[in-house]
Amino acid sequence: MNSLIRTLVIILVAQIALIAFMYSGGDKLAHFKSQEPLLPFKTEDVDTVQIEEKDKKPLVLTKKDDNWVIPADNNFPASETKVKEFLNKLAKIKKPLPVGQTKIAAKQLKVTDENFERKITFKQGDKVLGILYLGSSPVYKMVHARLAGSDLTYSIPFSVYQAAVQKDVWRNLKLLQVKAADISNLKLNGFKLIRKDKKVILSDLKDSEEMNSSKVKD
Score class of each variant (00 low, 15 high):
3 S>P: 10
4 L>M: 15
6 R>P: 09
7 T>H: 15
10 I>C: 07
12 L>V: 07
12 L>A: 15
14 A>R: 12
18 L>I: 14
18 L>N: 08
19 I>S: 14
19 I>F: 03
22 M>S: 13
22 M>I: 10
24 S>K: 03
25 G>I: 03
29 L>K: 09
30 A>R: 08
32 F>H: 13
32 F>E: 04
35 Q>H: 13
35 Q>S: 12
39 L>Q: 05
39 L>V: 06
42 K>Y: 08
43 T>W: 01
44 E>D: 05
45 D>Y: 14
45 D>C: 11
45 D>T: 08
48 T>H: 07
49 V>H: 00
50 Q>T: 15
51 I>W: 00
53 E>K: 14
56 K>Y: 07
58 P>E: 13
59 L>R: 01
60 V>T: 13
62 T>E: 08
64 K>W: 10
69 V>S: 02
69 V>E: 02
72 A>T: 12
73 D>G: 03
73 D>C: 01
73 D>E: 07
74 N>L: 03
77 P>M: 06
80 E>R: 13
82 K>C: 13
83 V>T: 03
85 E>C: 03
85 E>Y: 01
86 F>W: 13
88 N>F: 12
89 K>W: 14
93 I>V: 15
93 I>N: 13
98 P>G: 03
103 K>N: 12
109 L>T: 05
111 V>C: 05
111 V>L: 02
112 T>V: 08
113 D>R: 07
114 E>N: 11
115 N>P: 09
115 N>I: 07
119 K>F: 12
124 Q>F: 01
127 K>Y: 08
129 L>G: 05
131 I>H: 06
134 L>W: 14
134 L>V: 10
134 L>H: 09
141 K>W: 05
141 K>P: 06
141 K>S: 06
141 K>H: 11
141 K>T: 01
142 M>F: 12
144 H>D: 13
145 A>C: 10
148 A>K: 05
149 G>Y: 06
150 S>M: 01
152 L>K: 02
152 L>T: 05
155 S>I: 10
159 S>I: 09
163 A>T: 15
164 A>I: 10
166 Q>E: 15
166 Q>N: 11
166 Q>A: 15
167 K>I: 01
168 D>A: 11
171 R>A: 00
172 N>F: 04
173 L>P: 00
173 L>Q: 07
175 L>R: 04
175 L>T: 02
178 V>W: 06
180 A>S: 10
181 A>Y: 00
187 K>R: 06
190 G>P: 07
194 I>Y: 03
194 I>L: 04
194 I>C: 01
195 R>Y: 00
196 K>A: 10
197 D>Y: 07
197 D>F: 04
198 K>V: 05
199 K>R: 09
199 K>Y: 07
200 V>T: 02
203 S>P: 02
203 S>T: 03
203 S>M: 05
203 S>V: 02
204 D>T: 05
208 S>K: 12
210 E>H: 11
210 E>A: 15
217 K>L: 04
218 D>F: 01
